[in-house]
Amino acid sequence: MYGWIWRHLPGNAWLKALISLVLVMAVVYVLFNYVFPWAEPLLPFNDVTVDNQ
């Protein structure tokens, strides 16, 4: 999978490394801003009330 991505990136090794870094950062950004905020309320840490609102 990662080998396939690496082969399909353009440019030489340095450019590929740079693009990979940007891709990784983009993925982390999406995870922290959209995926994790969605997933976090599914865990029990939010249940602090007694009337379950």
Partner: peptide
């Protein structure tokens, strides 16, 4: 890796 990142998010980032 994603799970580790999620733990970091819950423990630290929130």
């Amino acid at each position: 890796t994603v799970i580790v990142l999620f733990v970091v998010y819950v423990l630290f980032w929130t």
